[in-house]
Amino acid sequence: MMMGKLLAADFLKIRKKMIWFLIFLAPVGVVSLQAVNYGLRYDYLMKTTEADRWGGLLGGIHFLLTPALLLGIAIIASMVANIEHQMNAWKQLLALPIPRTSVYAAKFALVALLLSVSCILLGIGTVLLGTMLDLGDKVPLAEVVKLAFYPFAASLPVLALQLWMSLTIHNQAIPLTVGIAGSIVSMFVTLPAWVVWSWPTLINEAGKPEYSVGAGLVVGIGLLLLGMIDFMRRDVN
């Protein structure tokens, strides 16, 4: 009940913010870039992906999705936290008879729900693009769902870290710089397996995307709990 009220209040706070525009812009941008790619190289791409045309489309979108997702996490987490920072509302909010853990969990849930909307829109856009490109009558819905949600699940540790930084650091340039650097590096550099910014790529030694997803869920929950503990003990201004 308490979480529901906090979430409802947080949704009201972002009602007139640019956050919703970004939530829609990200999946539309990724799908549009892939549409342009096919528009410019249609014959070549159709020939090279003849054996699995849907797989070729999904692979191209996944390549663009990873940095966009990491960048989106950093920006959305920062924007959600900055609402309280800009209004200097932390002291008033934390003075209410509400557990700090609930406040923190509500912010995490808000960002996760917003990003889930983007994932759903990405899946819908992917199916529409594939249908328009006439890639085949049998749409691989299971693979589309994996494309939309596997990278997000694997990125939960990044979400937990970005939210913790955004909530506890007043200067949002710091968490944004970390998030932007992580998204850029993940695109051009092969990172060590322990670096969480590499997990949304779903590349691991076992060659099983589910391992990255499982690690993301477990480590993400662990980092969320650690962030809650730190938030409980910290003076947030």
Rank of each mutant, 00 (worst) to 15 (best):
M2R: 14
M3L: 15
L6N: 08
L6H: 01
A9V: 03
L12A: 13
I23N: 06
I23V: 15
F24S: 09
L25G: 00
A26T: 14
N37M: 08
Y44M: 09
M46W: 00
K47Y: 12
A51R: 07
R53H: 03
R53Y: 00
W54H: 04
G55D: 11
G55C: 05
G56N: 11
L58A: 13
L58W: 06
A68L: 12
G72I: 03
I73T: 07
I76C: 12
S78P: 14
V80G: 06
N82I: 03
M87K: 12
R100G: 14
V103M: 11
Y104T: 06
Y104D: 07
A105M: 15
A106F: 07
K107T: 11
L110G: 04
L114F: 05
L115Q: 11
S118P: 12
I120D: 02
I120Y: 00
G130N: 00
M132G: 03
D134T: 08
D134I: 07
L135T: 12
L135W: 07
V139A: 04
P140M: 00
L147Y: 06
L147E: 03
L147D: 06
Y150T: 11
L161V: 15
L163Q: 09
S166K: 11
I174C: 05
T177M: 15
G179M: 03
S183C: 05
M187A: 15
V189D: 05
V189L: 15
V189K: 10
V196L: 10
A206V: 02
G207R: 10
G207E: 12
P209W: 03
V218R: 02
V219D: 04
G220V: 03
G222I: 11
M228E: 09
M228H: 01
I229T: 14
V236I: 15
N237M: 12
